[in-house]
C-alpha cells in the first residue's frame, strides 16, 4: 500500500495547498472580535501538518509488506464492471436534461441490468424489462402520487 498511500498523501496536500490559495482573498472585519480567517487557516494549516506527518510516516515506515501492489489496486479500482456502471451512470445523469427523466431512467435501468448480467439471454432481458417497469412504477406512485414530489 506504500505507493498508493504516497499518491493519496500527495493529492491531499495538493488539494489543501490549492484551497490555501483561496484563503488569501479573505479579509477581516474591523468590528469582529474573532478573525474571519482564523478557522479556515486553522483547518488548512492543521490539515497540511497532518498530511506532512502521514507522508513522513509512510516514507520512513519499514512496512514493505505490500498487502497488494499498486498494479493490483489499480486493476481493482478500474475493474471492467465498475467502470461500465460508472460510465453508464454519468451518461444517465447527462441524458436526463435532454431526454427527460422517465425515458433516461428506463434506458439506464434496462441497459445496466443487461450489461452487468454475467450471461445475456432472453430471460435476462425479460427480467430487466420487468425490473425497469417496476422501478418506474414505484418511483411514480411513491414520489409523484403519494409524496407529491417533483421528478428531475
Amino acid at each position: 500500500m506504500r505507493t498508493s498511500d504516497l499518491i493519496f498523501s500527495f493529492l491531499y496536500i495538493a488539494a489543501l495547498l490549492i484551497a490555501a490559495t483561496q484563503l488569501f482573498k479573505l479579509s477581516d472585519m474591523n468590528a469582529a472580535v474573532v478573525s474571519a480567517k482564523l478557522y479556515p487557516w486553522l483547518v488548512v494549516g492543521a490539515g497540511l501538518a497532518v498530511g506532512g506527518l502521514e507522508t513522513l510516516r509512510t516514507l520512513v515506515s519499514k512496512e514493505s509488506g505490500e498487502v497488494s501492489g499498486i498494479s493490483v489496486i489499480w486493476h481493482r479500482a478500474f475493474a471492467r464492471r465498475r467502470m461500465i456502471l460508472l460510465g453508464l451512470f454519468v451518461v444517465y445523469l447527462a441524458a436526463i436534461a435532454f431526454v427527460g427523466f422517465l425515458a433516461s431512467t428506463a434506458m439506464f435501468c434496462f441497459c445496466t441490468i443487461l450489461v452487468l448480467a454475467p450471461k445475456r439471454s432472453m430471460k435476462a432481458a425479460v427480467v430487466a424489462a420487468l425490473t425497469t417497469a417496476g422501478t418506474l412504477g414505484l418511483i411514480y406512485v411513491l414520489l409523484v402520487v403519494y409524496l407529491e414530489a417533483f421528478l428531475p
Binding site: L85, F89, Y92, L93, T105, F108, C109, T112, I113, L116, A117, P118, V127, A128, T131, T135, I139, L143, L147, A149, F150, L151, P152
Partner: peptide
Amino acid sequence: PRQYVIPVLLILCTVGCYS
C-alpha cells in the same frame, strides 16, 4: 442477484437527492 439491485438503488439515490 446484484445486477438487479445496483441500478435500482442508484436511481432511487438520484431521485432522492433531486427531491
